[in-house]
């Protein structure tokens, strides 16, 4: 189960393919989708870009910034960890497990200082053990540190998600992706300020409400109260 499959080696470009026809559509969607078609259409990588750090600008935590990544994490976290470094709140492991992200794949890392937090972020990104590393950065970010984090993510093919206050929108960073999130009732407005292979985009409305059918599918395998 943990040995590298031909597909994973092929995705890393380690296998030369005689037939260069694209991967079948069904397989592509299953493996590489972000879970949101509108975002997939904007990202040329067809999925959240592993190997890069995405900077997510938010007005305040709790507007849907985690739900945006959970569909992708369901598949990515099967053999790798998801690290949260100094999150402002506790991730709801019960909910995440029902969404297909096993609780034992979650790491919650707490540090006492900003310096240690940065060190832990770098270690998590560098190790290659995590599929995604969730980080919370201050408004004022250090260029040298962001560069180090981006290089670590690139070398280990890990997705870094750096949340920052939208007050930092006027500051430039070295991260190749930059998104601005805005809460709009049951939806969030996602606007890419910076992305690979494309220009700044207009805001797109994304619904991150839990899909109840997903829970029902899980419920079929579990004892209900009436059954007990």
């Amino acid at each position: 189960m943990h040995s590298p499959s031909l597909n994973s080696l092929s995705n890393k470009g380690l296998i030369w393919r005689g037939n260069t026809s694209p991967i079948p559509v069904e397989q592509k969607e299953e493996k590489l989708s972000t879970g949101f078609d509108k975002i997939d259409a904007l990202l040329n990588s067809n999925g959240w870009p592993s190997g890069d750090v995405i900077e997510v600008l938010i007005s305040q935590p709790g507007i849907g910034e985690l739900s945006l990544f959970t569909p992708w994490l369901k598949r990515a976290s099967q053999d790798k960890k998801v690290a949260f470094i100094n999150p402002p709140f506790i991730p709801n492991a019960t909910l995440l497990e029902l969404q297909g992200i096993e609780s034992q794949q979650l790491w919650l890392i707490n540090t006492s200082s900003e310096k240690d937090a940065l060190w832990a972020q770098y270690q998590c990104l560098k190790s290659g053990l995590c599929c995604a590393v969730f980080m919370w950065h201050p408004v004022k970010a250090d260029m040298a540190n962001t560069r180090k984090l981006q290089l670590a993510a690139k070398n280990s093919n890990t997705l870094g998600i750096a949340y920052r206050s939208e007050k930092a929108a006027n500051q430039s960073t070295l991260f190749p992706y930059r998104m601005h999130l805005k809460s709009n009732k049951d939806e969030i407005e996602v606007r890419f300020l910076k992305r690979r292979g494309g220009w700044e985009t207009r805001p797109i409305a994304i619904s991150t409400q839990p899909n109840k059918s997903q829970f029902r599918r899980l419920a079929e395998h579990q004892p209900t109260l009436s059954a007990l």
């Binding site: 999150p87 709801n92 019960t94 109840k212 419920a219």
Partner: peptide, 21 residues
Amino acid sequence: SSLRKLSRNNDLAHRPAWQTK
């Protein structure tokens, strides 16, 4: 996985992604 221990899944659809400490 500890998923088997969970029950009342439909109720959990109404739970938040973040929980305060």
